[in-house]
Design a binder for these strands. Structure first.
Lengths: 113, 113
DNA sequence: GGCAATATGCAACCAACGGTTGCGCATCAA
DNA sequence: TTGATGCGCAACCGTTGGTTGCATATTGCC
């Protein structure tokens, strides 16, 4: 049901901020990203490796630079999965709320198969 | 903008499954949860500690048992934050798509403030 | 061409975290 | 009382996010 690799890739706060920056700037390199983040270039490079491995970004070598860009389709997939988890919990919470209300109204007939 | 503690609490796949189980069963203990999970009771107990610390569950000692239940309000908050991140990325992806289409239509007038 | 600056990669190291095993303590029940 | 059950604490291990240090490749300027 859930793609744990995709989720865990997006689960790290630094990687989320990186995706934000890549989307805002339309791409970037490990160096440009680390300029805008409180971590070293090495840490950013590792994260880019993770994001690349799950396909959330793709890289284009250009001379001595390696430019990364977000893969929009894959990120859309990740977003869909976030929504799916949220929707599942939402549904369960609402079901619980309904049950609670039913109990509230008449305790003597409590019972659900 | 995002509560990293809440996010990272639901970021772990085991904790997500625990929340699922707690919602489905209407609560549980470390032992009952570990029965339904591929990890030991100790691991479950640690996770319950994490969830308790961020307020996603609350515990009721009952004899030798410690019964945990989901805090619906807090989980609703977490769900809202998931949706928020998803919505942000969704919006940016759509903006990118619009820009791409504009470029596609007429490259000679490209340029956005 | 040569050399400094820039961008990257690789390796070692550290701390935090998810997970395990082992043990001791409390509580319930026969 | 004694055995079974549920729990907490502590030590240990592998992975991961992060760091520093160093070597390598490309770029740009003289």
């Amino acid at each position: 049901m859930i793609d744990d690799d995709l989720w865990s890739a997006v689960g790290d706060p630094t990687r989320r901020r990186m995706l934000d920056l890549l989307l805002a700037d339309g791409g970037g390199t490990a160096t440009t990203l680390s300029d805008q983040l409180p971590v070293t270039r090495q840490a950013v490079a590792k994260h880019l490796g993770v994001l690349d491995r799950v396909g959330l970004v793709h890289v284009t070598p250009a001379g001595r630079e390696r430019r990364y860009e977000v893969d929009e389709n894959q990120l859309a997939r990740a977003v869909a999965q976030l929504s799916a988890v949220g929707a599942t919990w939402d549904a369960r919470l609402q079901r619980i709320k309904r049950i609670a209300e039913r109990i509230q109204r008449g305790k003597e007939q409590g019972g659900e198969s």
